[in-house]
């Protein structure tokens, strides 16, 4: 009989504690951790000129216009060109499209600034990993590749980089791994190991150039952020020395910009030393230097449509 009383008492106590539990605690206990994706590491598929880990979502069309003006200072800048505004170093117009939420493709026409001009580009980007809010996946990783063909008339001089003996001489490629993390809602950082291959290059230049890029964004407000982007190309000393001796020094592209979002449009107002817009050229053929006033205004406009 004693046992029964004890049991009864135990049961009553158990019931009592159960009744005390609030609904809030009950729901809290039930909560399953879901791996929700981290959104908007960047507001656009580009950091400045180079790619961000973002891809377009399924059935999204992105119409993009990028423009680099002429040198702001130095020999070709100053008031006579209205600080470079009278000249256009490079222009790109492109349509890009999301096939799935992780895979996008695009085609673009770029004026080109470097050895080759009249560039037609085909690109693809795939999001391999998506950072999640609970750090189940701590990084976003995307893979980007493009191939570019030049439509320009071949040079008559056989030693020129723009002399095309065969069609394949017109081609160049970029392959890139984009590793990014949104550290806080306002800070995103990105590493970009990059490989550029040009089928035809000038004397002492390199067909293959590896580079490491770094980029980031610091958001000031919900819709305005500061962007930074830098690429360090690994060139052979021999190649660097040759171009230096020729007075055609190569520089590393460094750019800063503002990211401005207005709901559907993303504007970038940029400031950088590279004249070219495509990776195939700005990583390998940047010959203008910040220190000599050879930097320029530029802008990117992105308009996304959901089809």
């Amino acid at each position: 009989m004693k046992h029964i009383y004890l049991l009864l008492l135990g049961c009553c106590l158990g019931l009592h504690s159960f009744a005390q539990e609030s609904l809030e605690a009950l729901v809290g206990k039930e909560e399953v951790k879901t791996h929700e994706p981290v959104i908007a590491t960047y507001k656009s598929t580009r950091i400045i000129q180079g790619h961000s880990p973002e891809t377009l979502k399924k059935r999204e069309l992105d119409f993009r216009v990028a423009h680099h003006f002429g040198d702001l200072g130095g020999e070709f800048g100053g008031p006579k060109t209205f600080f470079g505004m009278d000249n256009s170093a490079d222009i790109r117009i492109a349509f890009e499209y999301g096939i799935t939420d992780r895979f996008m493709v695009g085609i673009g026409r770029t004026k080109g600034s470097g050895n080759l001009t009249q560039l037609y580009e085909g690109l693809a980007k795939y999001k391999l990993l998506q950072q999640t809010t609970d750090d189940h996946v701590p990084l976003s990783v995307s893979l980007f590749g493009n191939s570019v063909v030049s439509g320009m008339t071949s040079s008559k001089t056989i030693s020129d980089a723009s002399y095309f003996g065969k069609f394949s001489d017109r081609l160049s490629y970029t392959g890139q791994l984009i590793i990014a993390r949104k550290f806080t809602p306002s800070l995103s950082l990105t590493l970009l190991p990059t490989w550029v291959h040009r089928n035809r290059v000038g004397y002492k230049d390199q067909n293959d150039v590896f580079a490491l890029g770094g980029g980031g964004r610091l958001k000031f407000t919900k819709r305005l952020g500061l962007l930074l982007e830098y690429y360090y190309p690994f060139r052979s000393q021999e190649s660097k020395d040759y171009f230096k001796a020729q007075g055609r020094d190569l520089y590393n592209p460094l750019a800063a910009g503002l990211e401005l979002e207005t709901g559907g449009h993303v504007f970038h107002i940029t400031f950088g030393n590279s004249t070219a817009i495509l990776e195939n050229q700005f990583i390998t053929e940047t010959r203008s230097s910040w220190l000599q006033g050879q930097f320029r205004w530029g802008f990117n406009i992105s308009r996304r449509f959901s089809l």
């Binding site: 809030e24 929700e36 908007a40 939420d101 919900k222």
Partner: peptide, 29 residues
């Protein structure tokens, strides 16, 4: 008669992905 509801704001799905991004980033934060 007590009632309790809880939902993670970022689980709302939109037809347009860009809206979902703006909903989380700009409006509901």
């Amino acid at each position: 008669g007590e009632l309790y509801f809880k939902v993670a704001v970022n689980t709302f799905k939109f037809k347009k992905q860009l809206m979902e991004e703006h909903f989380n980033e700009n409006y509901l934060e």
